[in-house]
Write a protein that binds this DNA or RNA. Sequence first.
RNA 1: GGUGGGUUGGCGGAGAGGUUACGCACCGGAUUGCAAAUCCGUGAAGACCGGUUCGAUUCCGGUACCCACCUCCA
Length: 472
Amino acid sequence: MTAIRLYNTRSRSKEGFTPFDPLDVRLYVCGPTVYDRAHLGNARPVVVFDTLFRLLRHVYGDGHVRYVRNFTDVDDKINATALARHEAGAKGTLEELIHQRTEETIGWYHADMDALGALRPTFEPRATEYIGAMIAMIQGLVDKGHAYEVEGHVLFDVRSYPDYGRLSGRSVDDMIAGARVEVAPYKRDAMDFVLWKPSDASLPGWESPWGRGRPGWHIECSAMSFELLGASFDIHGGGIDLQFPHHENEIAQSCCAHPGSDFARVWMHNEMLLVEGKKMSKSLGNFFTVRELLEQGYPGEVIRFVMLSTHYRKPMDWTAEKAREAEAVLRHWRSLTAGAEPLGPDVEVVDALADDLNGAGAMARLHALAKAIASNPQKDCFYEKGVLLASAQLLGLLEPGMGDWAEGVDLAPLATKLTALREAAMASKDFAPVDALKAALIEAGVEVRMSKAGVELVPGPGFDAAKLGALL
RNA sequence: GGUGGGUUGGCGGAGAGGUUACGCACCGGAUUGCAAAUCCGUGAAGACCGGUUCGAUUCCGGUACCCACCUCCA
């Protein structure tokens, strides 16, 4: 069996991966808050952990991996949108408008992530479906003396958990010293965080032992991972910005609620996405959505390729140049594997991925496999093509159904015309008409390939079918 | 201020204590009516200063610079 090694944030080192149960490997990844379209930064963990999911399925078997990615559908930004719609005269109660907003956002999220070739996780729980489990967990923390109620809030007492700060390598005292936020006066300790907060009539709320209210942000992941994966599971993933406070708080809650359990054994964090060298973030306002990129003509497969070509633990700069290169490579690989059937993936590709998801290493191997096929045009390379195809598909690339962008339109009539003009020109020695048509085709983004064997037209980067109409 | 990470050839971007990463670009060749595409091939690196070593870009220490987290964020 392939030996998987993963970098564990908790130990700050690469460790050999051994699941609790190889017949039931369990992975939890923090999903989106569904208040708006996913931006490109949101897509990075999706692609990274989708690749991990694919690797785990390859190694342990498709039916032996449980992957949970939540939807956070309790959030003040969602409430704000619903309230704005309500005030603008939208039909329905506030609750219905909230539900409408989260439903439409989840629909967008699915469409956008599908476009990136991400498999749907085994479970996609919504926070609102687990309120009861959260209340039960909070009550347990209160009973054990890890949480306290004050002014309608329930707060986690960080001093009751000695390991608080271990994941992110900081101590409670250091954090207080550097704190930049105003501390609510009712907190026992500045770092105590909210498990439950009161809701007034204008906000969604649920009845609880502490009155009508709603959960804090962190408790949902603890409750849902417990319900769906158990008190101890294998891998917990998310963006590095979640390491503190979100994941630190999850650990505190879960370990205190379920003493003796491991919670997540391996913690994996992807680095941030940069645009123009700056972190893409809401506060900087420099983010753009996956949908915008797709609509600009960047295929999902191209976006995925770019993401996988930088290691997940390094910042990745999104550039148009990388997308251009990715598109060219994918076109090449697609043409090499056209008509091939996927066989087993190449062992070196698997090994590269198994080494802490070394996407760039896997890509290098794919290039080598492609070169072996391309440099043997006299052979049919049935086996090699099948291996290349299966290997790329392990990365979520060259999947059938993802390649519509590379299919293009029917260029055969233009090829026929160009062939006729060329044959006439060969006789007359006047190549001007041929060159004119060729130039027009190139202008429309078509690659013009002429050889002794004939003429071949292939859509290239920047292909624009609209410019072809007048050429026939 | 605290914590963590980074610095590789023109650009992007990996692994490994000693042997070509890889891709793009460039250059040379094949091919082509000319091109394009494709194929073949060459060159090019490891921020700085020390240490360990027969040997370090790779390990250790220091310096400089960059970035992130400590506030909603993937």
